[in-house]
Amino acid sequence: MSHGNHDPFRMGFLTAVEDAERGFVGGLLITNRFGRPLEFQCTAPVKPNRAQQILYGPTLRPFVLGELLGRTLIDKIGVKPHLVLIETDEILDLRQHVSIPVAYFVNKVTDESTQLSLGKLGIAFHPDYLADREEMVRHAKAIPGDADMREPFERIREALAETIRLGTARTA
């Protein structure tokens, strides 16, 4: 079956888990519009050192999760998504470091200028990149209205827990 020049819509789901001993582990899952996986990338655990903790203070988490893990994962992923979805706006500034639209979930669309319906939920874009929203309007129609867009994050968390478990088992 030939797809011609058609580039089917792909979504990236980016999240991370924190292991008390080993630090943060980030994961990025690329799926087709129905949630079927195409590629998955995860990072090795990253634990900020004392100097970083002092220097970054409250901005440490956004820095590690967004700029360090998120940006690395997006750079490394082979199947590039059209949209990267994150769970909260904590690492929305990641958008400043990547060329792919980044959006976070809101329960209800309250501002049509910066937000968009996607599946059962709404997504909000970075206020400095409102063109992202216009770009995604077309793709959003390809997502089933009853799709649970938060579900893939559960899969990533389980996969990351598994990698930590196996990593710990191997180093033990």
């Binding site: 079956m1 980030g26 079927r36 996986p37 195409l38 590629e39 998955f40 990338q41 995860c42 990072t43 090795a44 990253v46 360090l68 893990l69 690395t72 994962l73 490394k76 992923i77 082979g78 199947v79 990698t163």
Partner: peptide
């Protein structure tokens, strides 16, 4: 910029 090691898998293309 701190270097982060990554690991990934690609899923086989199914028969459509």
């Amino acid at each position: 910029r701190q270097k982060v090691t990554t690991f990934g898998i690609t899923f086989p293309e199914g028969v459509a």
